[in-house]
Structures are given as structure tokens and as C-alpha cells.
Design a binder for these strands. Structure first.
Lengths: 337, 337
DNA sequence: AGGTGCAATGTAACCGTTTACATTGCAATA
DNA sequence: TATTGCAATGTAAACGGTTACATTGCACCT
């Protein structure tokens, strides 16, 4: 396995010159650069990245920390991240936080062992301990999270507010629904929180009053959608439409409607958020909100690499990137007015 | 950032002793080991993994090379791989081969730059150039691929044969279908090839003759399923059931049936392979074959780590691991006899 | 007591690359 | 011609570990 020493010998120059030539240092003559490159090619030389990272005390590996659960978004996200990192000669390392409690451990060791040149962190919210850990680290990072509230960080997030607002607004203004319920996500999840907020704001703006028992807390699972959907459909004065904070819970509502013998959208309408792959194939197809997840990954990676390359990040205004959403109207809701 | 030199100073021992203590070398006294560990903890020491990998000329990073396309399996696969690697103190690096032509390039540089300690390679088939590259590499690898034909490699694969055979057999023996068609995957895809083989064998064993025009080649996309489904359904003597080589093409057949005004399963039955998430929600739910993809990732990672740790792999008999499949019977097929 | 063997620890080379600093040699200048 | 300055290249230290080899000192043997 050839190294720069060998190239240096063959090209009759010093290792420093070889290193400089290979790194396009302007201080080396075009002539010697060509010579070095020629010899390197002849020897089929490949730089030892570990040695380089070690010497430079940097790394061209970007860590992508994912929550424990498997999610169909992840492969899109990973694809987006990897595409950008690859273009910039970086690598993508996927790290699942295997138990949530271990996230902090995993993180604090991974951040300090020199392996990573940057970090993309996908988290449901930013805990105090997490803040602590992030405060101590020197390597640049970007957070993918619903909450933009996290004022001091660079954050990429789906535009939950716009998406949920548009959908709610559509249900009220275009469809004519006035009895409208919402199944929220977990109360500690930033995405979920913002969707509730947008839902409430849209109702308020349209002068729709929402009874307390029309807003119920789920946990993004299908089971919770089923359970809470049953509850809502069992009310004496039941809603005309249920807006579930994600498609998975909307799916649970389909199950609930089936159990109650209710027809969607005639007896009860349902809408979701995410536009997971299955949604278009449901019977009826689900009205929902779509976000470009692959794009989210790309934007996060671009932002991170920008930070890595220009180390001025520190005192800069933190960047907030929102991934636009798009209303996807299908047949689980209808125009009733 | 503390390093072993600092620990050595504080503990009044040499760096060699520190290194040994941290690596659980039996040659160091329990007493000094405890002392070193105590000091290390006090200093909140984290080993520099890059330096270690560099010194040992090994790496605890496992590369997972994925094809360009986004697939819902990938996140399951990644999860399985990462879970195992994590348990063994390895990391998982995901590398998408961004254009198929670049796979060879990506690979040959990645294999030689010292970054990876092992490789899991997901490929539709093993080309000659790929064989060449793999022949030259020193680092251990495992292939995830449909074809077990690849005799000289360690391979983990879904048991395509058993799955396709069982399904075909079920359609004939249990359901009583005798006019049975098959939409294959791409002819250069090993998984697809084995599924066809199993389909034919099962038909043969049950003395069912399949007309030539009942076996048509798709490319695993929904569009090809639609197109070929239309073709098959337009035949004068059309099949009673279509076995599509994956669920995506089965989905296309649903579209085709809808266009032709045919009812599934009464006018035409459909079966698939993979049991993707959407299949259970189709109308009617799809009869198909399921494989444990996460398990596939785990097995591949386990096998690879075993190879890495015991470097005797070379002259050993190559390991062939098959991931069992399971018949999933739903309502897109029915018993007609 | 002196020698032997071995367990515990220390010393220093080494991994491949980068880079601060030193050196060289040539062109421009007085 | 001697001096200066700078561009090109060279020398060697440094990065943080691991490990071959050297050293130490103690227990055991004769």
C-alpha cells in the first residue's frame, strides 16, 4: 500500500512537497505538482483518510443521530444527507440512539472522540441535559426538530405551523366543517406542539370554538389513533372531522370508523399529517400534509458543511430553515357547505 | 482534552501502562489498573478513536453500501445493522452508491483508505468488475444479495426460493388456481431470478403448465406492474391469479384491475412478495410473502463482526445465511376449488 | 548468595499525514 | 557585486495512541 513517503522517493522530492502537491497548495510549482500527481497515479495511491484526519484533527465524517424507532422517513432523510455529504467529500455515519436514555451517553462520547467532523441531530425536543452536552462540544452541529423555539441553535424543520394551519383552514373555509377535533402528538414533542398551536390559531381566526374534549393527546401511534378516534366518535355531539397530528393516527381513526360502522368521509371525515406512503392507498385516500423529507436532509447537510468549512459560525445569528409543506387533498374529507 | 499522557502523569505510571490498563491487558496488576481507571474517570477521559484506529491500522467503522434508490427496507436494514454494530462497539457508516456506475469507484477508494474495518454490501447482483475489486481488498465483507450463487462469498439473503415456492404452492394446492401468471423482476436481479425459478418449480411439481405469455418481465416498479397487469388481464384466456415478484408491482396490478373494471379476487386474484407496509391496507389486503429485514441486517452485521474479530475467515467455507420467509395470506386471493 | 525466570512496568519507535520552521537558490535591487 | 526578499522545497515535530523490546525487581531454586 503506497504512501506519500514512497511517492516522495519515486518523485525525488520531500514528503512535504508531496503532501502539498496532493492538497493543491499554491506554493508548489505547477511542474512539480504534475510530477507528483503522475507518480501518485502510477502507484495507484489512495490517501489514508484516518491518518489525514488524525493529523489535521478534523474529520470528514458527519454523524447523523436518529431516534430509536424505525421510521419510513429515515431512509429519505439519510438519502438527502448522504447525497450532499458525498458531493462535498464527506461521509455519513448513522448512529441510532438505541435507548433514549443512552442518547446523552452516546452523544457525549461520540462528540469527543475525534471521529466526527460534524453532527446532525434528529430529536423530538431539546432537553436540558442535551443542551448541556451541546454547550460543551466544539464540533459544529445542526438540529432537525419541530421546534424552532430552540433559539440558539441552527435548526432545520418541517414547517409544521404552516402545514397544520393550512389544513385546518382548508377544512373550515373550503369544506365548511365547523365541528372539528384534533388528536395531538405527545405533549413533549415539538412538532406536535406546533401543530396544535396552528390548529387552534386557525380555528380562532375562523371564529370556530373547539370544545375541550375535542382536543385529545395521542402518541403518534396507530393504536392511540384507534383509541382516541373511538372516544371522539362516541361523543353525543361528535365532530364532523378529525385532524390527526400524523397519518399513523389517522390510520387508527380509519380503524375506529370501521369498528363504529361509520363511513369516511360521509359520517366522519379524517385528515392527517406527513403523507406517508400508505396514505394514498387507503380507502378512501387520506387528505393530509406533505413535507419534502429528502430535502430536509439535504438542507441540514448543506448548512452543516457550510458551518464546518467556515468556522465563523459561533457568533453568527443561528440559521432557521423551514421545509415547506404542501396540502394534499384526497377523499377522506369533502366539501359539505 | 485529556489524553493518555496526562493520565500517565497524574497516575505516575508510563503511557504504555495506561494504554494496557485501558485495554484490559492481563499483564497489568489489578491494583494499577484500578488506579489508572480512577484517574481516567476523574479526568473524564475519552479515548481518541481516530488515533487508536490509526495506530492499530484497523477501524471500528463498518460500511454499509446501499444502492441509489430509496427503499422502505433500508431503514429497517440499517436499524438491524446498527443495533448489532453498536453492541460490539462498532459504528455504522452508510454509503449510497450515488450512480450505479460510480459504485466501483466509490468502493475501490473506500476499501483502501483505512476508514473501514469491514463492509456490508447490498447489491442486486455481483458483476465481474465488482468481483475484481472485492478480490483485491483486504478488509472483511459480507454481501446482502438475493443470489446464493455467488459461491465464494459470505452472503446473507432472503430465502426467495422458499418464499416464492410456498406462495405458488399455496395458490395452486390450497386455493385451487390452475391458470397462474407471474410478473418477474429485472432479469439481471438475483432475487428476481430465484423467485421465477421457484415459481416454475412449484408449477412443475403440481403439474401445472404455464403458457409462455403468462410469464412477463417487469422491473419492480408500480408502473411496470400496471402495464403488464393490463397486458395479462387483456388476454383472451386470462389467468385466474397474478403472482407479482414484489408488492410494488402487485400494487400496479390493483391499478390495472381497477382500470379494467375487474374485482380482486373474484375476477382476478393478485399476490405479491415483500409485505411492504402498505400491503395490509390495500383493498383488499394483499396476499404476499414477508421477510424479516431487520433480522437480515443483524445477521449480516453479526457475521461480519465475527469475521473481523477472528481473522481466519480466508480459507473457511463461505457462510450462507438465509432469512426465513413467511406466507401472509390476506384477501386478494381466495379458495376457489 | 548467586542465578534464573517471569511478571510488571518503562522506553521509544511507529502508524501516515500535515505543517511550522529552516533552508535553498534565484531575481531584483542598490 | 553584494544584499535583500521571496518563492519553492526540505526537515522534522506533532497528532494520540499501540506495542516490540528493554528493564526492573521479586520469588524461587540450587
Amino acid at each position: 500500500m503506497p504512501n506519500i513517503k514512497e511517492i516522495a522517493r519515486k518523485a525525488k522530492v520531500s514528503v512535504a512537497t508531496v503532501s502539498r502537491a496532493l492538497n493543491d497548495d499554491p506554493k508548489v510549482t505547477e511542474e512539480t505538482k504534475q510530477l507528483v500527481l503522475k507518480v501518485a497515479t502510477e502507484l495507484n495511491y489512495k490517501p489514508n483518510i484516518v491518518a489525514r484526519n488524525f493529523a489535521k484533527k478534523t474529520s470528514n465524517i458527519i454523524g447523523l443521530i436518529l431516534p430509536d424507532i424505525t421510521d419510513e422517513f429515515f431512509s429519505e432523510l439519510i438519502k438527502g444527507v448522504d447525497e450532499v455529504t458525498y458531493q462535498h467529500n464527506f461521509f455519513t455515519m448513522v448512529i441510532s440512539s438505541h435507548r433514549y436514555l443512552q442518547l446523552e451517553n452516546t452523544l457525549s462520547s461520540v462528540l469527543r472522540n475525534g471521529l466526527l467532523g460534524g453532527l446532525i441531530l434528529l430529536v423530538p425536543n431539546i432537553s436540558a441535559t442535551l443542551k448541556n452536552i451541546l454547550a460543551q462540544t466544539k464540533i459544529p452541529f445542526v438540529i432537525i426538530s419541530g421546534g424552532m423555539s430552540t433559539t440558539n441553535y441552527d435548526v432545520v424543520s418541517v414547517d409544521n405551523y404552516q402545514g397544520a394551519f393550512d389544513l385546518t383552514n382548508y377544512l373550515i373555509k373550503k369544506c365548511g366543517y365547523s365541528k372539528i377535533a384534533h388528536i395531538t402528538g405527545p405533549s413533549d414533542n415539538d412538532d406536535a406542539k406546533i401543530r396544535v398551536k396552528a390548529f387552534k390559531d386557525a380555528c380562532l381566526e375562523n371564529k370556530i370554538t373547539v370544545p375541550k374534549n375535542f382536543i385529545v393527546e395521542g402518541d403518534f401511534t396507530r393504536e392511540s389513533g384507534l383509541r382516541l378516534g373511538m372516544e371522539l366518535m362516541s361523543l353525543k355531539n361528535k365532530p364532523e372531522v378529525i385532524f390527526a397530528a400524523n397519518d399513523m393516527m389517522a390510520l387508527g381513526c380509519y380503524d375506529a370508523a370501521f369498528k363504529k360502522g361509520l363511513h369516511i368521509p360521509d359520517d366522519i371525515a379524517v385528515a392527517g399529517f406527513d403523507d406517508i406512503f400508505v396514505s394514498q392507498y387507503l380507502n378512501p385516500p387520506l387528505t393530509t400534509v406533505r413535507a419534502q423529507i429528502e430535502d430536509e436532509g439535504k438542507r441540514a447537510a448543506e448548512l452543516l458543511i457550510e458551518k464546518i468549512k467556515s468556522k465563523i459560525s459561533v457568533n453568527n445569528q443561528p440559521k432557521k430553515i423551514k421545509i415547506a409543506t404542501e396540502l394534499v387533498i384526497r377523499n377522506s374529507t369533502k366539501i359539505i357547505k
